[in-house]
Design a protein around this nucleic acid. Structure first.
Lengths: 348, 348
DNA sequence: TTTATTTACGCAAACGTTCCCGATAACGAT
DNA sequence: ATCGTTATCGGGAACGTTTGCGTAAATAAA
């Protein structure tokens, strides 16, 4: 179905004047007489004229839209980030175009190519768990295409970045478990390619060491696909419980891993926190409703989206090339609830 | 920062041929010699040429993008719908542009204007809870702009629609509560403007009547803003418990209302299901982890997104105006867990 | 050899805007 | 009467592509 829209030409024809005059009248140029302006304005109103953003984009060589690539939309953390992105973009008159990589490197490359071929003015991206090779991003970045990295970043590209203090988040969570008497703390985490994995595992290890506990590599389970299929998490948790010394606590480093872990434990009939304590990175808004109420490391997701978008628009709208880049590090919050408090010390 | 891209002209200049030849060579036209084609292809490859989708959009008067308006992205149900939308759009080479109305009528109108001014080829929309006047949608629809309504629809506009069987979902949920011995079932629901409110409340009432129970209007609490602010839900729940006969069960008709209801009950110290049972529409993926495991009416959100997008693309890509419209009604699923099972009948 | 057909390419218009240059007319100043 | 201003408008190129039409050369048919 073709949907015919009224253009500046229609107004010109209706009024018997030129398109240039119409254009200028609409933009309130000084070289158009007040009478003509009013005529044009009235006519535009009557015909319900709307400027064609595509023609404008072509002319101005900018689309006033930004691309977003995340692994998944249906995820508490990322949907909150997108919320933040949209809030800023909306205020500044930018459209938001969203792509999901679904944790696939190939899709990430395709998404990037697609978005970057000048249909968007800039890009916000959180890397997929499969992504190791960064040439697709580097090529774009080298050409001067505005990119801001958030959450899952890489040091290989010199641009604005927004993350949370993952080390601190993991350190605090682990130390909290230690202070509550846990001595065999396992970590359930993402692919080793990811920056967040490194930072969070480092925080976890450092907390163990600082508190005189040893790091057992067998206690660290990686989920290469970030738990995109449930079996992956199930296998990882099961491996944890086939060790000679079963863990007495699990630290999960992402939203999906945390809920996947809890489901697996429940299905195995393991009680939290009696049999095993759990604390995880999560942005769910019903942590308090979970059985038991879940101790989480909560990220300021909305803030992250806002900050990343502000930095991107700054990049896009700057006249001269920017050479100094910023790395914003937001602070995660440890929300302590019952899932991480060993009952044995409390009971009678 | 300007980001210069290589165009068809650059290739033409480099090869000393015309732009038409380049264009035709790239589109593998029969009237270009194999040698020239190869030359052009090689050159395009070397310069890393990407066609400019904006120029194409202007030429073809279509943008290959669709607009989506929902009240909120950070919501289990809607993010799953968007997931479905994106999956189809991606396959068909369409971009997805997302706007949030945040349950505000004014923002919905603005979003619509913005998207519809020919930057998108069609629109998927779920109405905001505030929306009563539909003239903004009607005007667009009258001009032949392709629109598909989903979830919160209206009968005032004749186009494709995709919903779930809200009546059945509510009926089944209510009947389930009745069969489990509940006699004072309250309903926590959205604004009366919304189609889903009507349908779900109707199902609730019908189930009561069919099972010989009376309908008390005081047991039906509406949240005009759909629970966008928590206090709204809190107030509604509190009102329920200031009745002379306190309800022994609550049926909540949306994701946000369900979780908000549970939070309020928890904060009031009311036990579910001992003090009051709860069943609600919800697409959370951790219903089983909630205390107690939550009985939900789950909507096939991903399917809904897919179906709506398929219908929209069908509308967009059809040569002649479509006059026969479809209303797809998907089936919701009642997932029974413990939150709706009165313990008193089970105990000792 | 002449004519008709094919092959392979270029010209230019078009999509909807903006904006640089002119162009015209009216008017006051010389 | 001539000139410079000012006010007001139109012509046309440009953004990157596609495509109808024209046309030259090469080939085939007569």
């Amino acid at each position: 179905m073709k949907f015919e829209a009224v253009t500046i030409k229609d107004i010109a024809r209706a009024l018997g004047i030129s398109t240039s005059t119409v254009s200028r009248a609409l933009r309130d140029s000084y070289e158009i007489s007040p009478e003509t302006k009013q005529l044009v304005l009235d006519c535009a109103e009557k015909l319900n004229y709307r400027p064609n953003p595509i023609a404008l984009s072509l002319k101005e060589r900018r689309s006033r839209s930004i691309g977003v690539v995340v692994c998944e939309i249906a995820n508490n953390f990322f949907s909150q980030v997108i919320n933040g992105i949209e809030s800023i973009a909306y205020d500044k008159g930018y459209n938001v175009i969203i792509s999901q990589s679904r944790e696939s490197y190939d899709r990430e490359v395709i998404d990037l190519q697609y978005l970057a071929s000048r249909s968007v003015d800039g890009l916000l991206i959180s890397l997929s768990t499969e992504t190791n090779d960064l040439s697709h991003l580097k090529a774009l970045h080298a050409k001067g295409f505005p990119i801001v990295l958030f959450d899952r970043i890489t040091e290989e590209i010199n641009t604005h970045k927004v993350i949370v203090d993952n080390f601190k988040g993991a350190y605090d969570a682990t130390e909290h478990l230690i202070r509550n008497g846990h001595t065999r703390i396992a970590a359930l985490t993402n692919s080793e390619f990811l920056s967040i994995t490194h930072e969070r595992v480092a925080g976890y290890k450092e907390a163990l060491i600082a508190n005189g506990q040893k790091v057992y590599e067998d206690y660290i389970q990686h989920c290469f696909y970030g738990g995109m299929m449930f079996e992956e998490i199930e296998d990882a948790v099961n491996k944890l419980f086939t060790q000679r010394h079963k863990p007495d606590a699990i630290f999960a480093t992402s939203d999906k891993l945390t809920t996947g872990c809890l489901k697996t434990l429940k299905r195995r009939g393991l009680k939290v926190p009696d049999d095993v304590s759990v604390v995880g990175f999560s942005n769910t808004d019903i942590a308090e409703l979970i059985d038991p109420p879940l101790t989480v490391v909560r990220q300021p997701a909305f803030e992250m989206g806002k900050d990343a978008t502000e930095l991107l628009l700054q990049l896009i709208e700057s006249k001269r090339p920017i050479k100094e880049f910023e790395k914003r590090i937001l602070t995660p919050e440890l929300q302590i609830r019952e899932s991480s408090i060993k009952k044995i010390f409390v009971a009678e």
